[in-house]
């Protein structure tokens, strides 16, 4: 644990096989494995999310594997975004919103009483649907999060490394002092990814990160994601089924059976199986484009 970045990655890789062990029983929710999720994966148990008296998501259990991309798909309004916001305690930022259940990062329950959401969010980063760079320079956009979290290393190096990881460095290296707003939409989103990477999270949550972007930008973001899973655990909400099929290792399908019900995790499995031979009919209808 004493070494920086590289050691962390190596460690994650060595732990990956251990995760694979319970891969097989991924279908439909929590594994009852006593061993618990690995240090850098997440395990969600019976999670429900509310907005005031309205229940948006109910009883979701799933294991999120380390160093894999997990995609969440499903029709609009079925609670995918709400769910992913529960995974780094962003949901509770909305007045009246709360979540119940257990969300483990490693062997820690992030909803435990003594857990500080501020620290959780550094370890579980998030990229939002619409690019939301700060109205600061490109450099400051990346450096800010690291600075408030007390980063002691070489800031220039961290900014450069993060921008490179987000595949943005070449485009912005000569204008780091310019405002983040001056970039195109796709560049802004990669800036937001870079800023998330700069605080060295373990998990990156992405809520439809490409939905507001053109196809070329989307392609770049997808390439970036492919790189990211080498070092991070990635969870991504997407409306785009091709995208889910292309980039993810695991896929969860959210669905609402009757209007007004809360959203549920209908099926969860390896992406290949979900798109070729899902267990449930609704999943098949959705991935083949029969509705939604």
């Amino acid at each position: 644990m004493a070494n920086p970045r590289r050691t962390k990655e190596e460690q994650k890789v060595t732990e990956a096989p251990q995760n694979r062990r319970d891969t097989k029983k991924g279908t439909g929710g929590a594994s009852s494995d006593d061993a618990g999720a690995s240090a850098f994966g997440m395990r969600i148990e019976n999670l429900s999310a509310h907005y005031g008296s309205f229940k948006a998501v109910t009883d979701v259990s799933m294991d999120i594997r380390a160093n894999k991309v997990t995609a969440l798909i499903g029709p609009s309004g079925c609670g995918k975004s709400t769910y992913i916001r529960c995974l780094n305690r962003m949901h509770e930022v909305i007045p009246g919103a709360r979540a119940e259940g257990r969300v483990r990062l490693g062997d820690q329950d992030i909803y435990a009483r003594d857990m500080d959401p501020v620290r959780i969010r550094r370890r579980i980063g998030m990229v939002f649907q619409k690019p939301n760079p700060f109205s600061k320079s490109i450099y400051e956009n990346v450096a800010w999060g690291a600075r408030i979290n007390g980063y002691k290393g070489d800031m220039d190096e961290l900014v450069e490394h993060s921008l490179k990881q987000a595949a943005l460095w070449e485009e912005v290296k000569d204008k780091l002092k310019k405002s983040g707003y001056d970039l195109s939409g796709g560049q802004q989103q990669r800036l937001c990814i870079a800023r998330t990477l700069a605080v060295e999270p373990e998990v990156i949550l992405m809520d439809e990160p490409a939905s507001a972007l053109d196809p070329v930008s989307t392609q770049k973001i997808e390439d970036t994601m492919d790189q990211l899973k080498q070092s991070y655990t990635v969870v991504i909400v997407t409306h785009n089924m091709q995208q889910a099929a292309r980039i993810s290792d695991y896929t969860g399908f959210f669905y609402i059976e009757n209007m007004g019900d809360p959203g549920r995790l209908w099926e969860f499995d390896e992406t290949e199986k979900m798109f070729s031979n899902p267990d449930r009919k609704e999943t098949e209808d959705y991935v083949t484009g029969r509705f939604g």
């Binding site: 920086p4 370890r123 007390g150 002691k152 999270p201």
Partner: peptide, 10 residues
């Protein structure tokens, strides 16, 4: 201890 690259983060 769970965090990453701890020696760089205060």
């Amino acid at each position: 201890g769970q965090g990453s690259g701890q020696n760089l983060w205060r």
